[in-house]
Write a protein that binds this DNA or RNA. Structure first.
Lengths: 342, 342
DNA sequence: TGTCAGCACTCTCATGGGGTGAGTGCCAGC
DNA sequence: GCTGGCACTCACCCCATGAGAGTGCTGACA
């Protein structure tokens, strides 16, 4: 069975009409609305062909056609990359991402809000991962008697800290010297590459404060490996409840579960490639919880480093054209914003 | 119209039965199920009295009674404070809050999860507010050329930091000295009391680094006043979708909006008094968005300071007995956990 | 005076059947 | 290969019907 020009046209028309109306699309409707110059009967036979190819289906005998996940996939692959976002949307995005944002977390949070309100789907933005950033310095800062605060700073200004217990007999000067020594030796490393061995090496000589070093090392090893899971900004999950596919409370509950269990989304986003806009449709999602959804995502950069991922989660019946354009534009502007700011 | 013993009994029975079944409660049903020793006819006349008092209502002529918000209020005020949580629940809470938790954020997050899974409603936990904590030290830590990281640490180990720009001609030693000077002078202050004037005073003399001081002051003034809004942990919003009162997508969307706009919940929680378990029912909520919900909340402490608030949001038809017991127990155990840990 | 059985009445909700309309598949003719 | 015609299939709306739940009222009784 070949996929000729008419099949393309009909598939596209069915998909777009279904996206618009959320209803099964009939042949007559299509013949009138789209100006295909053939009769409904012809369209019917074309549709039958598309159904045989697995791109369309219909819920019951006398209903119109709806696309299958595979149908959406073919449709999406037909889309011309680089279709621009409406000028008004572009302006809105630039306005809201261009202001004087004080903190990095504010920028990514703002990006999530924009995407959600613009597309009326749920948005997810993974903040720049700690691991990809460049280690700048470690500071162990005394906090009262036997407590101190250990802070790692990266060259792009992110920081992560935690309180640690101090062994007896350590002075503020000791801590200062220690901080300086470690900072000097590890500067320029990727945070993700701060392995236990490496720390051991860098600290090895300063054996005088053995127990303190152990505490710091234990923290770095555990937190940087595990706690480095990037922070997610999720916005607009409620929009999904308006979609007819999530009308039944069970379906709604199931999809909201995804947004409450951040690890699921984090894993899904992690699959996005570094280049271009990535689309994962329904059953294509590795994660069962997302099988009734589609994900449109893109990677952004933070300065010269890999930043994180921005994405949209919606029903498989998603407005892909708009979603793709919005995700791409937001990812680009986010990269711009992070090139010049904190 | 007096509120005699029979009215109490009937009101309680109606409320508890309605909470259980989510259906209007009829007189016959009540007479059989509860062992009130009167006939359905008598119960009917009692119900009519309760309705006249505004505590019950009925959706249509031939339906049973359901409580009004005011009815729930009277019911709730009748509950004996101090009813214990089932032993199994208590054990579960102790187990999950008692482990070796690494960070304060982990404890509050865990508390939110426990409450949500235990009650099957949505839970909200406000992390200890920065403002109530005691200022410990300020550190301005160099980050590359003309950038530095300003970090405030509180005596309980919380920290908040942000990058600032350095004016020319400042050395690491200058920063150290400055940090030390400010720390010394402000130690012991409540963070919330770090007003602009106070900072001005504390820094006044070190006028050599005027522009740096300005940057630090600007940050402190803005962020500590505004950004000090405590972080909220929200969990289990999806549970609400299972409640019949949120069946209609519009109702569901409206209630989920509350959970996506943290400021709404933060404001609602802020109204909780420091002592005891606080209940706010339906129309009692100042915030219109919460008018179809009830909120059960309690304040916990962090060491010797006021900590934050734990709460549950559910339908007005909430299992108040269990909710109150769960909130109280979690708040108490959370206070315990924060007394002894980071 | 409070309680209760009896009764008429009201209203919701589930059920089922008929009609309507949208849409299909197939076929014969151009 | 396209098209008009036609029979057929369902989903869905509408409406009538009846069952069931629950109420309010009344009059009798202790």
């Amino acid at each position: 069975m070949q996929f000729d020009a008419r099949k393309r046209t009909v598939l596209r028309a069915v998909v777009e009409e279904h996206i618009r109306s959320a209803e099964p699309v009939g042949s007559e409707h299509l013949a009138v609305r789209e100006h295909l110059r053939v009769s409904p009967a012809t369209i019917r036979s074309t549709m039958a062909g598309l159904e045989e190819m697995g791109l369309l289906t219909h819920p019951h005998t006398s209903a119109g056609r709806i696309p299958t996940d595979q149908g959406y996939r073919v449709y999406v692959d037909m889309l011309v990359e680089g279709e621009p976002l409406p000028a008004a949307d572009r302006q809105e995005i630039r306005r809201r991402l261009g202001g004087t944002l004080e903190e990095r977390a504010e920028v990514t949070d703002q990006a999530a809000r924009i995407l959600a309100s613009l597309t009326q789907y749920a948005s997810v933005v993974a903040a720049p991962g700690f691991q990809h950033q460049t280690f700048q310095s470690l500071h162990v800062v005394p906090l009262g008697e036997r407590r101190a605060l250990a802070v790692i700073a990266t060259s792009s200004g992110a920081l992560q800290g935690r309180p640690i217990d101090l062994p007896e007999g350590i002075t503020a000067e000791d801590l200062d010297a220690l901080s300086r020594a470690i900072s000097q030796r590890l500067q320029g490393c990727r945070v993700g590459e701060l392995t236990y061995q490496r720390l051991e090496q860098a600290m090895g000589e300063a054996s005088r404060h053995h127990r303190l070093l152990e505490a710091v090392k234990a923290w770095l090893r555990r937190d940087l490996a595990r706690g480095a899971r990037p922070r997610l900004h999720i916005e607009g999950a409620r929009h999904l409840l308006r979609e007819p596919e999530f009308r039944q409370p069970e379906a709604a509950t199931r999809v909201l579960e995804v947004f409450e269990e951040e690890s699921i989304l984090a894993e899904a986003l992690a699959a996005a490639p570094v280049e271009g806009v990535w689309i994962s449709i329904g059953a294509e999602n590795r994660l069962a919880e997302l099988r009734s959804c589609s994900l449109v995502a893109a990677t952004y950069s933070a300065g010269d480093e890999i930043g994180g991922t921005v994405g949209i989660v919606g029903p498989t019946r998603m407005r892909y054209r708009h979603a793709v354009a919005a995700v791409r534009y937001v990812a680009d502007r986010l990269s711009d914003a992070l090139r010049t700011s904190p």
